[in-house]
């Protein structure tokens, strides 16, 4: 497979995953905001966390003077200045699909193309600020379309190189997001004197879409158990551990030879990451120590995705937002 095509497929999957998660996070926060009091400063902390998870506060503040809800929503959804704005990542998915359309199922391209041409163009032409109900409907549409895409990939694509490169992109992006989310929620608690099992972890559970699955297994929603679940649970599909297992499968499928230098490099990195995640003992940590650990894991993770790109001669994202 051409490196350029592998690269575009990998990024298409990453953007697809990113868009899905960001749409969910925005939906959660838009709903949360309704329940909190009418005072903006009551929920601005949450918006700040959302901003840091979905984009970057520094970049935002380079363009705006203060964090206020309407401009922030606009920034996260539509701004061309934000490389991770939903509109921009959706376009990147479609463009990457367009350059790889001879390697993906025709229906996959058609779903993405239709969505882009209809729903996405339609919301751009709406008067601002867009009513909450329309925003929610759009976000739901985004997620539904991407579920359909994921299902289509899963059920129709040959288990061949294009499929596995998309898999790698998806799991890499997902685990990175989980680590980032955890880190940012911890950073918000930096000033607290409480221990991890005294802090409420509901917001993190909601952001990571893990609430339903978590509550079926645990009753306590303290931050300690939530973080352990998101990092170490082997069955929850957004946990870092789960993503690592899936990536191991994909690497094994891409490299038929378990003795090839490429396989050995990637496989040993994955294995050591599994150990590193498994061995974190959050019980004995305070918030600050947990932050340091998560910062380390995040930079390790980013280094790992760079190693992957180098090994397979991937380009810079061929279609950057």
């Amino acid at each position: 497979m051409l490196s350029r095509v592998a690269d575009a497929l990998y990024w298409m999957a990453r953007y697809s995953e990113r868009t899905q998660t960001n749409a969910h996070i925005l939906q959660v926060q838009l709903l949360n905001m309704l329940e909190q009091s009418g005072q903006e400063h009551d929920y601005i902390d949450h918006w700040e966390a959302v901003l840091n998870i979905c984009a970057s506060k520094e970049e935002y503040l380079a363009n705006y003077t203060a964090i206020r809800v309407n401009p922030l929503i606009d920034y996260l959804l539509f701004s061309e200045k934000n490389g991770n704005a939903l509109h921009v990542t959706l376009r990147a998915i479609r463009e990457n699909a367009r350059v790889t359309r001879d390697s993906i199922p025709a229906e996959l391209w058609e779903i993405q193309n239709t969505f882009y041409l209809t729903k996405q163009q339609a919301i751009l032409t709406m008067d601002r600020p867009i009513p909450l109900i329309d925003l929610q409907a759009f976000l739901q549409e985004v997620r539904k379309t991407l579920w359909m895409v994921t299902g289509l990939i899963e059920s129709t694509m040959d288990r061949d190189l294009p499929f596995y490169f998309m898999q790698i992109g998806q799991w890499l992006e997902r685990a990175e997001k989980t680590i980032r989310m955890t880190l940012i929620i911890l950073e918000q608690q930096k000033m607290t004197r409480l221990s991890l099992n005294e802090i409420d972890g509901t917001f993190l559970l909601e952001l990571s879409a893990a609430k339903e699955s978590f509550l079926q297994k645990y009753r306590q929603t303290n931050l300690l158990s939530v973080i352990r679940y998101l990092l170490q649970d082997e069955h929850y599909p957004c946990s870092v551990m789960f993503c690592l297992k899936k990536m191991e499968e994909a690497i094994t499928a891409i490299e038929h030879d378990p003795l090839s230098p490429r396989f050995l490099t990637l496989h040993s990195t994955i294995k050591s990451f599994v150990l590193a995640i498994d061995h974190i003992d959050f019980w004995s940590m305070n918030v600050e120590e947990a932050i340091i650990i998560m910062e380390e894991r995040l930079s390790q993770w980013i280094a790992f995705s760079e190693t992957f790109s180098t090994i397979y001669h991937l380009y810079e994202p061929s279609v950057q937002p």
Binding site: M1, L2, S3, R4, A6, H313, L314
Partner: peptide, 17 residues
């Protein structure tokens, strides 16, 4: 695309993974 190809020793190659 052009950037996927490279010429070495008067032969043409494509850049694969």
């Amino acid at each position: 695309e052009g950037r996927d190809l490279v010429v070495q020793d008067l032969k043409v190659y494509m850049k694969t993974i």
